[in-house]
Design a protein around this nucleic acid. Structure first.
Lengths: 212, 212
DNA sequence: AACATATACTGCACTATGCAGTAAAGTCAA
DNA sequence: TTGACTTTACTGCATAGTGCAGTATATGTT
């Protein structure tokens, strides 16, 4: 049982779903905490069935059928055991930052483009969450009694996205001061930033440039 | 060629490394932007050799040998092509948030423990970056002319970690108001939070509880 | 001399992704 | 009403990536 299996099992604990519903629900609602491919999401409930944590049966819509999955008591017990296990550390995959680290291979404009692309991707996710929250106000939550959990979860996303957007602006004003991407090294400005960071403090909110 | 291959290729562009050095360097310095397993990191340079992007030769230390990898001109060209490609969207895997979403399966104390574990993991990474920055002040950067890049990268990490730590405190004060994890639903407080989030605004800095 | 730790990897089973392919049902417009 | 497009509803396959165990030498420490 992987974390992905427990994620699907937790969805099954809410109600029975077809494989199709399950994958799409998981992509809509779990994407920001646990992003997994459609392909995997289709495979997981099958595995749960072989483990006895779920049952499956076919349901027909005209000439076509879909697989409906339902959690078993054994599955509910497995979920409870998961609750007791150690939470895995978070994992952040950010190609934009990898490109930043090696930005001296390209031009300042290449780096600016990378920041633009990161901003666009984050903006998309930011908008999606904001719209989801607006839909909760208008139409309510699909599982009304779980609204408080979705909303506390959403405060994390929004906090995350706004702080990344703040950083992107900060990074842009920083690189605007750079004559090139390479061989800058330990400038006065960089030394000043290190001073803050070494104390674990955020540098994003400080004044753009210290007068030299 | 995957992003991981380009990450290794970018390291090889700095200087030749042994497979061992490469994996350990990648885990130390790239971990926060591109976390990959030791196993993969050992395999990547081999792939680069078969593609003609790197060459390899054995070097001996006593009776034991290590594989030294060096970038080729073709490899440098590949790196340049990578610079022109679209940056992949970021990806955040946070099991703690998955557990939060399904917290109604367990107790409030289970949820509190999850937050504690997240705090511990983030704190570890936060400290590691702060220490790295302190070492730059004391001993300098291993590639001095690239200090500005590492430091701008570090401003992102610290910003991220401090904002997550702020959110954890916020989440703790929120759940302190909950009588249980389940069936709370759309409370006054939750509705107030949604109002903010639907506008894309951060809720973390607002006052703990609106008087009711 | 014994032991731990760092160096320096490889094999293997399993997890996960991306893409292509298949096919039926619904929906809207010329 | 027919054709085009989207949504529903998946599966197969090659490749990417992880985790763990295993192997073996070198170096420093008690």
């Amino acid at each position: 049982m992987t974390t992905s299996s427990y994620a699907i099992l937790a969805l099954l604990d809410l109600r029975p779903w077809t494989g199709y519903e399950l994958t799409h629900q998981a992509q809509r609602s779990l994407r920001y905490a646990w992003p997994k491919s459609e392909r995997l999401l289709y495979s997981e409930p099958k595995k749960l069935v072989t483990l006895g944590y779920a049952t499956t049966h076919q349901e027909a819509t005209g000439n076509r059928s879909s697989n409906v999955y339902e959690i078993t008591d054994s599955g509910r017990r497995a979920l409870t055991e998961w609750t007791g296990s150690r939470t895995r550390p978070p994992r952040f995959e950010i190609e934009a930052l990898l490109r930043l680290l090696f930005a001296d291979h390209g031009s300042i404009d290449d780096l600016r483009r990378t920041l633009d692309e990161l901003e666009a991707d984050i903006g998309e996710q930011h908008d999606a969450i904001a719209e989801l929250m607006a839909s909760y106000l208008d139409d309510g939550h699909p599982f009304p009694q779980r609204t408080h959990l979705s909303v506390l979860f959403a405060t994390f996303q929004i906090e995350m996205f706004t702080s990344i957007e703040r950083w992107i602006d900060f990074a842009r004003t920083e690189i605007d001061q750079w004559p090139a991407t390479e061989d800058l090294g330990m400038t006065e400005r960089t030394a000043a930033l290190i001073g803050l960071l070494a104390d674990g403090e955020s540098a994003v909110s400080i004044s753009p440039t210290t007068p030299s």
